[in-house]
Computed example of a mutant assay.
Amino acid sequence: MIQRHDTQSRMSRAVVYNGVAYLCGQVAGPEARRGDITAQTESMLARLDALLAEIGSDREHLLSATIYLKEGDDFAAMNAVWDAWVPEGHAPARTCITAPMPADELRVEITVTAALKAGGTGGRLY
């Protein structure tokens, strides 16, 4: 069964199928959007942690990640936050590219695919 979380006309925040969660792009929260790449990456990953927990997964269950940077010059600073966030031995397959952002103040966005934790049900439905 396909479970869709927080579905709107254009997208769902997450879709879970066969024990795999496909998450929509996550960006920094409003409080961090005027910050530098470090602040935005920390905020974005905190929001990702919350969404993963909501659907019954966590950062140890990441399968893949695609990171979009507004500026290539932010790569090293973003990686410093990323490297501290990813649990040792649990790095997902990852791609990082530069791309336009949906809002001028945004510097980073991430899209991930994650397995549910053992016994996970995909969290609550909206």
Rank of each mutant, 00 (worst) to 15 (best):
I2F: 09
R4D: 00
D6L: 13
Q8P: 00
S9F: 13
S9E: 04
R10D: 08
M11W: 14
R13E: 11
V15H: 03
V15E: 14
V16A: 10
Y17R: 09
Y17V: 08
Y17C: 10
G19D: 10
G19F: 12
A21G: 10
A21C: 06
L23V: 09
G29E: 10
P30E: 13
E31S: 07
E31D: 11
E31Y: 02
R33M: 12
R34S: 13
D36A: 07
D36R: 03
I37G: 01
T38C: 06
T38W: 01
Q40D: 05
S43P: 04
M44A: 08
L45T: 03
R47A: 09
D49E: 13
D49N: 13
D49H: 08
A50N: 11
A50D: 14
A50C: 01
A50R: 14
L52Y: 06
L52A: 05
E54C: 04
D58Q: 04
E60G: 11
H61Y: 15
L62P: 05
L62I: 08
S64I: 09
A65C: 12
T66M: 07
I67A: 08
I67Q: 00
Y68G: 02
Y68W: 08
K70I: 00
E71I: 00
E71D: 14
D73S: 15
D73M: 06
M78D: 00
W82Y: 15
D83G: 13
D83T: 11
W85P: 04
P87W: 07
A93G: 13
T95L: 08
C96Q: 11
I97A: 08
I97K: 13
T98W: 05
T98L: 06
A99G: 04
P100Q: 11
A103F: 12
A103W: 07
L106P: 00
E109K: 01
I110Y: 01
T111W: 00
V112I: 07
A115D: 10
A115P: 01
L116A: 07
A118W: 01
G120I: 09
T121F: 02
T121S: 14
T121W: 03
G123W: 09
